[in-house]
Nucleic acid binder design. Structure first.
Lengths: 204, 204
DNA sequence: TTCTGATTTAAACAAATGATTAAAACAGAA
DNA sequence: TTCTGTTTTAATCATTTGTTTAAATCAGAA
C-alpha cells in the first residue's frame, strides 16, 4: 500500500505530477507547457504522466477543475450568507479576493483565458441565484440603490478587485512601478474599494 | 512592381499573412497557433510565411506591436488633452474603450497575457506623465478629491471599463446570460461608469 | 524466500511542427 | 521575344512532442 503519504519529501509521484502541472499550466498556456516540462518540474519519469493521467488533456482538466474551484469557492459562502448586509459582504469579498490573489496572482488570467462560453462549470448560475443578488434587487426596489442591472453591481465589485492583478504588468509598465509600490496600491484598494462601492450605491 | 495593391481581393500575400496572423494570435496563444494554421487562414503557401517574415516569432512580434498600439493609442490623445476636465476625460475614455472592445473583445486578454514585466513597450510611463495624472494630483491637493494614490483613480476607470470584456465568458456562465443580455449590460455601463467614478471622487 | 501486482525506467514511435530548398511561375524591362 | 529578379510552389528536413512499449525495480503477501 502506498496511498496517503504525509511527508512532503515522500509525496507520491501522482501528487508531484499534479503539483507540477498546476504550477506550469497556471503560468503558461496549454500548448506552451510540454509534457517533458511537467515531468522535469515534478522530478519524475515522463511515462508516469500517461501512466497516471492517460493524457496531457486529462491532466489539464484536473488542474482546470482545481483552479476554478479555488477561484469561485471562496466567495460562494460569502454571497449566500443570510446574516450579513450588502456592505459587509462587499468588504468580505474584497478582502478574501485580495488575500487569495496576492498568493496566486496568475489565477485570474488562467480562469479568464480558459473559460469558454461552452465550458460547463459547477458554478452555472451560482451568482444569479445567490442571496446577495436578492438583497441587491430588494435594495433597488426599495429605492435604497439606484436603478440598475444588479449584475452590474456584482461586476463592479469583481472588476475593481480582480482587474489590478490581471493588469499588473501593464500597470507596472505604464506607471514605472516596482513590486513594492504595486503592493501599496493593492493595500490601499483593500480599504477603498468597499468605500467606493458604497458611494456608487448612492448615485441617483 | 507589386507593392501597394488597393483591391481587397488582390491583397499582397504579405498583407494576407499579417491579417491571418493577427486574427489567430489574438484569439489563441502563441503556441496554440501553428504556422500551417496561419498559412491556411491566409490562403497562401506555407513557405511564404518564412519568406516574408523570417520566423513565426518575428510575425508574432508584429502582431503584438499592432495590438499594443491599438489598445493604448486611442487613449493617449484623451488623457493628454489640456482642454478637458477630469470628468470629461472619463466619459471619453469609457466610450472610446467600449466602442473599441465591442469590435475587438479579445484584445484585453491578448494584451494582458502577453505583456510581461520585462516587455519594453513604447508606452512606458505614458500614464504617469499624462496630463490627466497631473489634474488628478492637483484635485487631490486641493481637497476636491479624497486622498489616494492617483494611480488608483486611473485604475478604477480602466477596471470598470475593461474587465467586463475580459470576464465575459465567466459572467455569461455564472449568470446564465446570452449575448444580447451581455450587450445590454455593457450599454448600461457606458452611461453609469462615469457617474460611478464621479461618486467615488466624493468619498471622504 | 518466492511470487504477484504495482510502479518506474530508458528507449522508441509516429505525428506534428517550424523552417529550408530547389525548381517553377510570374512580371516587367530591354 | 529574351532576360532578370521576384514570388510562389511542392517536397523535404531536422526537431519537438505526446504517447507507448517492454523490461526492470520495488513492495508487500504468502
Amino acid at each position: 500500500m502506498k496511498t496517503a503519504k504525509t511527508k512532503k519529501s515522500e509525496e507520491s509521484a501522482e501528487q508531484k505530477i499534479i503539483e507540477a502541472a498546476r504550477k506550469l499550466f497556471t503560468e503558461k498556456s496549454f500548448d506552451a507547457v510540454k509534457t517533458r516540462d511537467i515531468a522535469n518540474e515534478a522530478g519524475i519519469n515522463l511515462a508516469l504522466l500517461n501512466y497516471y493521467f492517460r493524457s496531457k488533456e486529462k491532466l489539464f482538466e484536473i488542474v482546470m477543475q482545481e483552479n476554478m474551484q479555488k477561484f469561485f469557492q471562496s466567495i460562494v459562502g460569502i454571497i449566500n450568507d443570510e446574516e450579513t448586509t450588502i456592505r459587509e459582504k462587499v468588504e468580505l469579498l474584497v478582502n478574501r479576493y485580495i488575500d487569495m490573489l496576492l498568493n496566486s496572482p496568475e489565477l485570474p488570467i488562467f480562469v479568464m483565458s480558459n473559460i469558454k462560453s461552452s465550458t460547463r462549470t459547477q458554478f452555472q448560475g451560482r451568482f444569479r441565484d445567490s442571496f446577495l443578488m436578492k438583497q441587491v434587487q430588494k435594495a433597488i426596489k426599495k429605492g435604497k440603490m439606484p436603478d440598475m442591472n444588479p449584475v452590474n453591481f456584482m461586476l463592479n465589485v469583481v472588476s475593481l478587485t480582480i482587474f489590478p492583478f490581471i493588469g499588473k504588468p501593464m500597470i507596472k509598465n505604464s506607471h514605472n512601478m516596482d513590486d513594492k509600490q504595486f503592493l501599496e496600491l493593492i493595500e490601499e484598494r483593500r480599504t477603498l474599494v468597499p468605500k467606493w462601492i458604497d458611494a456608487m450605491m448612492k448615485v441617483k
